[in-house]
Simulated scan of single mutants.
Amino acid sequence: MRHLSTTDRHTLHQQLEQLKRQVLEELRASAPSAYLVPAEGEHEVKSHADEAEAERAADVHMAEIEIAHTRLEEIERALARLADGRYGICEDCGAEIPRTRLFAQPTAIRCTACQAAAEARHRH
Score class of each variant (00 low, 15 high):
1 M>I: 11
2 R>N: 15
2 R>A: 09
3 H>S: 14
4 L>E: 00
5 S>L: 03
5 S>Y: 05
6 T>C: 12
6 T>F: 14
6 T>S: 15
7 T>G: 13
8 D>V: 03
8 D>A: 01
10 H>M: 15
10 H>A: 15
10 H>F: 15
11 T>L: 07
11 T>G: 01
12 L>E: 01
13 H>A: 11
14 Q>H: 10
17 E>I: 06
17 E>N: 15
18 Q>A: 15
20 K>Y: 09
20 K>T: 08
21 R>Q: 13
21 R>T: 10
22 Q>I: 08
22 Q>P: 02
23 V>K: 04
23 V>W: 02
24 L>T: 09
24 L>P: 00
25 E>G: 07
26 E>Y: 08
26 E>H: 03
26 E>I: 01
28 R>H: 00
30 S>N: 04
30 S>R: 15
30 S>Q: 15
31 A>S: 09
32 P>K: 09
32 P>N: 01
34 A>H: 11
35 Y>H: 08
36 L>V: 05
40 E>I: 12
41 G>H: 07
41 G>M: 04
43 H>S: 13
43 H>V: 00
43 H>L: 15
45 V>D: 10
46 K>C: 02
46 K>M: 04
47 S>A: 03
50 D>E: 10
50 D>G: 12
52 A>L: 15
57 A>K: 06
58 A>Y: 13
60 V>T: 10
60 V>A: 13
60 V>F: 10
61 H>M: 06
62 M>F: 06
62 M>R: 11
63 A>Q: 09
64 E>L: 11
64 E>P: 00
65 I>D: 05
66 E>M: 11
67 I>Q: 15
68 A>N: 10
69 H>M: 06
70 T>I: 04
72 L>Y: 10
73 E>Q: 08
73 E>G: 07
75 I>R: 07
76 E>V: 11
76 E>G: 01
76 E>I: 11
76 E>A: 12
76 E>S: 05
78 A>E: 10
78 A>Q: 12
79 L>C: 12
79 L>G: 03
81 R>A: 07
82 L>P: 08
82 L>V: 09
82 L>K: 05
82 L>E: 08
82 L>I: 06
83 A>W: 01
84 D>T: 06
85 G>H: 07
85 G>P: 09
86 R>D: 12
86 R>E: 11
87 Y>L: 08
87 Y>S: 04
88 G>H: 00
89 I>Q: 12
91 E>K: 00
92 D>F: 00
93 C>H: 02
93 C>T: 12
93 C>L: 05
94 G>L: 05
95 A>I: 00
95 A>M: 03
95 A>F: 00
97 I>P: 06
98 P>L: 05
99 R>N: 04
99 R>V: 07
101 R>D: 09
101 R>N: 11
102 L>E: 03
104 A>E: 05
106 P>T: 02
106 P>L: 03
111 C>F: 02
112 T>D: 05
112 T>Y: 11
113 A>Y: 04
113 A>I: 05
114 C>I: 02
115 Q>Y: 06
115 Q>G: 07
116 A>Q: 13
116 A>M: 02
117 A>Y: 10
118 A>K: 11
120 A>C: 02
123 R>K: 13
123 R>D: 14
